[in-house]
Computed example of a mutant assay.
Amino acid sequence: MKAYQIWSRFLLSLLAVLVAAACGAGGSQPQPQTAPADASPASASPSAAADQGATKTEPAYPVRQIEYIVPYSAGGGVDLVARAAADYLSKEWGQPIAVINKPGGGGTVGAEYALKQAKPDGYTVLAVNVSNTSMLAAGMAEPLIKNDDQIYTARIGKGTMAFAVKEDAAWSDFASFSEWARANPDALTWTSVGPAGFSAFGVAEWLDRIGGDYVKTRMIVTKGASDSVPKVAGGHAVLAIHTVGEINPMLQAKKVKVLAVGGEERSPFLPDVPTAAEQGIEGLSVFWWTGVSFPKGTPEGVIKKWEAAVAKMTSDPDFVKKLHDIQVEPAYADSAQFTQDVEKETQYYTELAEKTGIRN
């Protein structure tokens, strides 16, 4: 009996020790933390801060090669400016920029590739100019490329319109040539990348001012100035209307001559050639320009970076000299101003196209 009592006491003591140990272990477990009464949800949870609008870091750009699409043949004004810009910006950013020529369709083949087929990631940029933007939209009722298809990012340069004929052509001045064109519209042939190109609007505006018949003249389609001016030099067309820079190689080779330039002032690159206004034909306002655009959906950071880079580039004396070497003047415009100018131009050219018969 005595042994039984001793054993029972031992078991009770052991049970008490085990219970005490269990209680001690439970008391040492960490308790749930309660946020201070004045703590905000963001301070209570880092992920909540990200969900409530914390700014994410913009990805680096560019980190690889950029395709600079020129929708005309090599050697023309758009191409030459694009190559100068690509060279400058590739050094500025430390990434290659490849100029790729995709001519055809009056500039629409390359534009469609850059704006509708390529990804809107900033790695495909389009060399736009007046022919495949405001003039295209004005000249065609259903253009393949519209102003709304792109983000006008920055304008780079501009050029003066020049009227060129074969070097040994009978006309010695623009006034006499204009009289001939008014009297002989059926015999007037002229070159253009398409029915809504720069040359087409230059011809239409000129004929409208002198009372000529645009519809009776004949357009000869080319791939650009490098194809167009040689056709005039070879006698396959009477007139080429391009920028001073685009005509200059054939002018220097004495294959063509320039009868007049458009605008209110003489070109700084052809100071001896009178304006059309000086020869009694006023109101020729068509001028050439080129810049860059991206497809809709391109990140805003890409647009801003190009905008700033082009602004810097067109203020750089070395780049300006390169433009002058190809007879192009710097004419920077940021995205907002560029877009506004294109819209204004489109309205003017649409009215001209409807009046003269360009629009179809």
Results as ranks from 00 to 15, higher is better:
Gly297Cys: 06
Lys255Asn: 11
Val232Thr: 09
Arg266Gly: 04
Met219Phe: 12
Met250Gln: 15
Arg266Met: 01
Ser226Met: 11
Val256Arg: 08
Gly263Leu: 04
Ala237Ile: 09
Thr290Ala: 10
Ser285Ala: 10
Thr290Asn: 12
Gly280Glu: 05
Thr243His: 05
Pro299Trp: 13
Val244Thr: 11
Val221Ala: 14
Ala277Phe: 02
Asn248Gly: 01
Pro295Glu: 08
Glu264Met: 12
Gly283Tyr: 08
Met219Asp: 01
Glu282Ala: 12
His242Ser: 13
His242Gly: 08
Lys231Gly: 08
Gly280Trp: 03
Ser293Trp: 00
Thr222Cys: 05
Ser293Met: 10
Gly283Leu: 02
Glu246Ala: 09
Leu259Lys: 05
Gly262Lys: 02
Gln252Pro: 00
Lys255Phe: 10
Thr298Ser: 06
Glu264Leu: 14
Pro295Val: 00
Val292Phe: 15
Ile247Ala: 12
Ser267Leu: 04
Thr222Trp: 09
Asp272Tyr: 03
Asn248Trp: 13
Pro299Met: 12
Val238Cys: 01
Ser285Gly: 00
Val244Trp: 09
Ala277Cys: 03
Phe294Asn: 09
Ala253Ile: 04
Gly291Trp: 06
Val286Thr: 11
Ile220Pro: 02
Ala225Pro: 11
Thr290Tyr: 03
Pro271Tyr: 03
Asp272Asn: 14
Gly224Cys: 09
Trp288Pro: 00
Phe269Met: 05
Ile241Arg: 07
Phe294His: 12
Met219Asn: 11
Arg218Cys: 00
Ala237Gln: 11
Val258Ser: 05
Ala237Glu: 13
Arg266Lys: 14
Lys254Val: 09
Pro230Met: 09
Thr222Glu: 11
Gly291Phe: 08
Arg266Phe: 04
Asn248Met: 15
Gly245Ala: 08
Thr275Val: 02
Trp289Gln: 09
Leu239Asp: 08
Pro274Cys: 06
Val232Tyr: 14
Asp272Phe: 03
Val244Ser: 11
Gly245Lys: 10
Ile220Arg: 14
Ile247Tyr: 01
Val258Pro: 05
Val221Gly: 06
Pro274Thr: 07
Ile241Trp: 04
Pro271Trp: 05
Asp227Thr: 13
Ser267Tyr: 06
His236Pro: 00
Leu270Tyr: 09
Ala233Lys: 05
Val258Gly: 02
Trp288Asn: 15
Lys257Leu: 07
Val238Gly: 00
Pro299Arg: 14
Val244Asp: 12
Ala253Thr: 06
Thr243Asn: 13
Arg218Asp: 00
Val286Trp: 00
Lys255Ser: 12
Ala260Trp: 11
Thr275Asp: 01
Val286Asn: 04
Val229Pro: 06
Phe294Pro: 04
Gly235Thr: 02
Lys231Asn: 13
Val238Ile: 14
Ser293Asn: 10
Pro249Met: 12
Glu265Lys: 15
Pro299Gln: 13
Ala253Leu: 06
Ala260Gly: 11
Val292Pro: 02
Val244Gln: 11
Ala277Thr: 01
Gly291Ile: 07
Glu278Trp: 01
Thr222Val: 15
Leu259Val: 10
Gly280Leu: 04
Pro299Thr: 04
Pro274Glu: 03
Ala260Ser: 14
Glu282Pro: 00
Glu265Ile: 03
Ala276His: 01
Val258Thr: 08
